[in-house]
Structures are given as C-alpha cells and as structure tokens.
Amino acid sequence: MEDYELVAAALSKITNTQVITYNEYLSQKDKNSDQIFQYFDSNLLHDIYLVKGVVTSDVIEVEDDDIASSSNVEVENSTNNFENVFISFSGETLEIKNLNANTTISQLKNKIFESKGIVPNEQWLTIQNVFIKNLSGKTLTVKNLNAKTSINQLKNKIYETEGIPPDEQYLNYGLKSLQDHQTLSYYEITNDTTINLSTRLRGGSNTIKVLDRDFLDPHYNYDFTNIKPCGRTYMRGNYKYMRPYGWNRLAIRVLDKYSDNRWLGVNNRTKFSESVEGEWIVSFHGTAKNNANSIAKDGFRLSKGRRFQYGRGVYSTPDIDTAACYADKFVHEGVNYQVVFQNRVKPGTFDVVSSETGLKIFITRNDKNIRPYGICIRKI
C-alpha cells in the first residue's frame, strides 16, 4: 500500500488535482457530501500525462547530420488501418475494410451503402455491450445500445438496474465527462468500452480522483535505486535501453490493455538483455507541464546549421537523466521526490534529434504510438 500512497502523491502533483488511494476513498466517501469521486486508471493516465511541446513558428537551426528521421514517420492525421470491422444483419456478416482512426460513423454507413445499397439514414448500428465500472469495482454490462444512444438514455438504463438517479450519476470516459445531450458515437464509445461511474452527491462540485486498486502491477516492479551500471548493453525494440539507475521503477498494469502484449516484449525473450520481435523502444518522459515547451525548444538547440522546424509532438528521451531535467518534484511524508514516466515508443513512428555528444530526443506525433508503462521515482 505504501507504493500506492507514493504514486498518489506524485499524480496529485502532475495532474494538479487531488489523487487518493482506494483505502483513503473508503474512509472519506461517507464523511464529506461536497465531493465527487472519480476513478483514476491507466487509460486516464495515458491521456493526462502526455505533455505535448509546441515548437514556435520561428525557424530553428540545426545541422543536417543531427536529424535522424526514423522510417515511415506517422503524423497526427495518419491513416493507419484498423483490423477489419464486421457488420451483422439479417443473418449475414459484412466485412468492412480500410477504416482508419479518423473514420466516422457516417463514413462507415456510406461504406455499408456502397456494399449493400442500404441508405445511410435507414441504417441503425448497434453497440452490443458497454461496461459500466463503479468505485466499488463492480462492473455492470449495459446491452442493446446503438451509436445514437444518448448519455441520458444510458443513465436511465443504469438507473433501471442500479437504482442510482440519473442526476446523481457521473460518467467518465478517459478525460471526458460525458454530457447528457451527447451520444455514444460523439465520444467514440464502441462495443465493449468500459465507462467509469461515480456518484455525484447533491450540492457537490469538487472532484477527487481515486487510484484504481489495479493501477500498479507489483510483479514487474524493479528498484534500481542502489544498482550501478555494470557495462552490459540492454536492447529493447532493437534500440539501446538505458536502464533507470538510481530510480525506483513502479510498474503500471498495462498487460492486456491493448490488442496484444508484443509491444512490451513479455513473450519469447530468451535473454533478458536482448530484444524480441514486435517490441517497442523504451523512452522516458518528464512530467512538468510548464517545461513541455522548454524540452521542445532545447531539442532543436542541440546543434546549429540549416533551417529546420517541427510542430506539435510528445517529447521523450532514451536517457532518464535528460527527462529528469523536465520532471516534477513533490513531497510525500516530508521527503522530497522527483517523478519521470517510463514509456514504450513504437519503432518507425517518431523523429530523432541528436546532439554532437549523442544526446537524443524523440518526437512522437501521435500519442497512440507512445504508451506509459512505468513510474520512476527517486528521493532528492
């Protein structure tokens, strides 16, 4: 439980809001009716911690040789293909191909029209299951919804099952508070999506985030605090992994959170120091929001030379000491700490800016290609 208290203190600093452990929630929930409690889970972390730096429109100068662009760079309007989507109707299954992250429900309906001749306004797409998870850990399955189902209608279905009046329900998906008048498709809620449910107490306006009891994965914790480099080379994603020596790495529970676990390299590793197929590269990300632009600008001032500029991106580095320069500091039980996130970055989806000394900064356009999986904390 000590790790959870430390992480809650770190996240409180990073998010500029109060984050408490689940045990603290149990002791507070009946004492103060002026508070709203909201789950803080790994999905919310992914959305909230990815601080994006913005390089100004001023031209910044670097040397040609100091830019090492990774192959097949993805930009924010990338059209990565999804796996095929299957539409079932009248006992028939239709396969829809070549969808991407920007495909809308309207565009999907047009593809169905092209294939089957069903006019879009006569189509009624059904979301079979939506999962509602409350603070007690109970999960409710709400069935027979569709893309046009409003949040208010969803709340009424929860009321029918759980008896919680709609005006006392607080539904949250990622960082978004779901508004009654909007639809499930507006929030891109699809089949088997999990929505967090909190109780909005009458008259309350303050929100306290409650750390999910399954937020951490202690089995994969590794305390590097007193470990020194031994000269051995470690590889992750066929890229040198600079281990976070001097830091305590607490693992975030991310296994099975995505379509597969290959990005973590947890399967088929024959030697701990070597990469495995499909594994993503390790990087570190400082957490101080007010330093996001600084790391962006510093990345381009590593050298001087030809004219070059980039736009918005997530800035991380394979060197935790570099990330620490842009990290938040916090106090827990009278002790000063610093916190940095450990990530995996998808190969071939980021640019690299390098200095003459070998210092590197990764620039990731699309936050889907960088995933936090560890929280590194050290005393200072």
Rank of each mutant, 00 (worst) to 15 (best):
N156C: 06
I132R: 00
A68Q: 13
E2R: 10
S71R: 12
L197M: 13
K138L: 13
T322I: 11
W247R: 01
N336D: 11
D167T: 09
G374K: 02
R269D: 01
G313I: 12
L45S: 00
S12P: 12
I67H: 13
S355I: 06
Y49A: 05
T161C: 05
E333V: 14
V85R: 03
G174N: 04
D3N: 13
S150T: 15
S33L: 10
Y39M: 14
H219A: 11
S303M: 07
T364C: 05
F341G: 00
N268G: 02
T199I: 15
N206I: 09
F362R: 00
G305M: 07
Q18V: 05
G374R: 01
S316V: 05
V75K: 10
H285N: 01
I48V: 14
A296G: 15
A10G: 08
T194Y: 07
N343I: 01
L45E: 01
V7Q: 08
S90P: 03
E188D: 14
K368D: 08
V345L: 04
T270I: 12
Q153P: 02
S90V: 06
N23S: 14
S185Q: 15
S71A: 13
I20W: 04
F86I: 15
K97R: 15
Y187L: 10
D58Q: 12
K346I: 00
N72T: 07
K346V: 01
E356G: 07
R307I: 04
S78W: 03
Q35W: 06
N23D: 14
L108H: 02
K29F: 03
A10T: 11
G117P: 00
P347K: 04
K379W: 05
W280K: 00
I252G: 01
N248L: 11
Q35R: 12
L250C: 02
P165I: 09
T139N: 05
E61Y: 14
Y159Q: 06
